[in-house]
Design a protein around this nucleic acid. Sequence first.
DNA 1: TATTGTTATACTCTATAACTATA
DNA 2: TATAGTTATAGAGTATAACAATA
Lengths: 152, 152
Amino acid sequence: MTAPPRVSDLTPLISRSVPFLLHCAAFHSTRCVADALEPVGIEPRHFGVLCTLHSSGPLSQGSLGERLGIDRTTMVQLVDDLERRGLVERKRNPHDRRSYQLTLTPAGEETWARAKELAEGSEDQVLAVLDDDERDALRELLARVVLAHDRP
Amino acid sequence: MTAPPRVSDLTPLISRSVPFLLHCAAFHSTRCVADALEPVGIEPRHFGVLCTLHSSGPLSQGSLGERLGIDRTTMVQLVDDLERRGLVERKRNPHDRRSYQLTLTPAGEETWARAKELAEGSEDQVLAVLDDDERDALRELLARVVLAHDRP
DNA sequence: TATTGTTATACTCTATAACTATA
DNA sequence: TATAGTTATAGAGTATAACAATA
C-alpha cells in the first residue's frame, strides 16, 4: 500500500471526502498494527489467521481462506509462513486425507496472546486524539456503515 | 485492492477492531466512488487530479504528484490517460521548458463538475445508514484521527 | 551538475490455470 | 467426476534506475 499524501496539501474537495479520510485512517491504523506486531515477527494478515484459528480452529486451509476472504493459493503461502515459524501445525484430517486440520501450536497460542496485546496497544495509539466516548462512537458508526455493505 | 470478507464470518477479535473496520469502510467507499465515476470514464485517482488542477492549477507533473502522494513515473501514466481523453492539456512552461503547465481543458472542467456530483452522490450512498448528525460526527472523528497522523 | 519528464525494468501482491492426491 | 492443496504463471499497481532535454 502506498502512503497517503499530506492532508494540508490537498484541496478540501478531496481532504474532506469520506472515502479519502477512510483511506488515510485505514492506512495509518494498518501501519501502526504492522509496526506493533514486528517484535513477534508476524504481519497483520498472519494475526488474522492466528485469531481465527484461536477462536474457531481447527479449520482446513480452504475454509480458513473463505472466512478471511483470502484466495486459497495465497493461503498456502500464509500458512507456510506460520508453519515455518512453528506457530501453526498442518495435521491431516483422518476423515478426508485431502484436507488439513490447521491448529495453533503452544507457541502459536502464546504468540497470539502477545500479538493481541500489541494490536490493542496500537489501536490506542491510532485513536490517541479521541477520548473514550469518541472512540466508542467512531467504532459504532464504522460498524454500522460496514455492516450495511456486508454480503448476505 | 481485494474485497474484504463477510463480517459475520469473522471472530469479533477481528471484526470489532478499528483497523479492520476502517479497511472495510475504505474499500466499500472507494468502490462506490469508482462505480459512480464509471459513466464519465475516469477512476478515483483521475478525479483527484482533476480536483487538484481545478482548485490549484496550473501545476507541473512533479508538483502535482507531490501533492497527491503519487510517484512521478506513475503520474506520467495518469496524465497520459487524462490527456488521451481530452480532459487535461500539457502546455510547456515558457520560463522552464523542462516542465509542463498542466491545465484542465473546457471538457476537463465539465467532467470535473459532473464527477463531483457523482462522487458526492456515492458518498450519500455509502453513508445511507447514518443520519445527517451521524455523518457529520463520523467525518469529524475521522478528520481528527487523520490529521493527528499527518506529516508536518 | 541538477532537475523534469520519460521509458524500461523490477518488485509486490494477488489471481488464474494446471497439476497431484485423495474422494 | 469433483475437491483440497500446491505450483507455475500472469496480471495489476507501484517503485527504482537509467536516459534525454533543459536549466
